[in-house]
Simulated scan of single mutants.
Amino acid sequence: MTLKKLLLLACACLMLAACGGVDPDSPLGKRQALFKQMLKVSENLGGMLRGRIPYDEAAFISGAAKLDKLSHEPWQHFPQVRDDERSKATDEVWQRQARFHEMARDLEAATAALVQATTSTPLRRSTLEPAMQGVEDSCEACHKAFRAY
């Protein structure tokens, strides 16, 4: 192939790739980015408690605080009506908004309880594990009710 054809092919591929993406400044893009951050922090905390990654008390305390802060953020990026068909949220989010927001508050309460469990050092697994399980259960309950897999 000539250089000209290769450049044209490369440009076409880049344009096609850009068409399928989500605008990071859109409500969908913002909430997806926040949920990804929450997942990463949550996986690190759970990984420390389950021995998948080395336990670091200071990192756990910091991670719990970060997760608590993040847990308050995504809800503002869910508009009153469905905004994007590419969302993994089911129509139930918009049809049952009161329940959706109640479950969001449940997650916020669970992350606050996790932060509370980190206030007395040295941290104890017997306190951290149930608090972390509460966060994970809250996430799972909302996903089962409102996320399309």
Rank of each mutant, 00 (worst) to 15 (best):
E85C: 00
Y55N: 01
G47L: 11
L45I: 12
F35S: 06
K69E: 08
E57I: 04
L49D: 03
L6K: 12
D91C: 02
L114S: 05
F35K: 07
C13Q: 06
E129N: 07
Q133I: 09
A112Q: 14
L114P: 01
D83P: 08
A12K: 08
M38W: 02
A141D: 02
D25R: 11
L70M: 09
V41A: 10
G21V: 03
G47K: 06
K88A: 13
R31M: 06
E43W: 04
C19Y: 01
D23N: 15
R86P: 11
M103L: 15
A113D: 13
S138T: 05
E85A: 15
R99C: 00
A112W: 01
T119K: 15
Q80R: 13
D83T: 12
E108R: 08
H101K: 15
V81S: 13
A117T: 06
D25V: 01
L8D: 01
A33K: 13
K40W: 09
A148T: 11
R99M: 06
S71Y: 04
H101T: 13
K5N: 11
C19Q: 14
R99S: 08
L39T: 12
L34R: 04
R147A: 07
R105H: 10
E136Y: 00
R50I: 00
L34V: 13
A98F: 03
F60Y: 15
T2F: 02
G63P: 12
K4N: 11
Q80D: 15
A89K: 07
Q80L: 12
A110G: 04
S62W: 04
E57W: 08
K40T: 14
H72W: 08
P130D: 02
E140D: 10
F146R: 02
Q95A: 10
L16K: 02
D68Q: 14
G47V: 10
A18H: 06
T111F: 06
Q76H: 10
L6A: 14
R125C: 00
T119E: 14
M48C: 07
K30T: 11
L70W: 08
H77M: 05
K66M: 10
A145S: 13
D84W: 02
E73V: 01
D84S: 06
T90Q: 04
L114G: 05
L8M: 14
Y149G: 10
G47W: 09
A33P: 05
Q80M: 11
R86K: 15
Q95P: 03
P27Q: 07
C142Q: 05
R96G: 02
E85I: 09
G46V: 11
C13D: 00
R125E: 11
K36M: 14
R96S: 12
M103A: 03
S138C: 03
Y55D: 01
P54W: 00
A117I: 07
L6G: 00
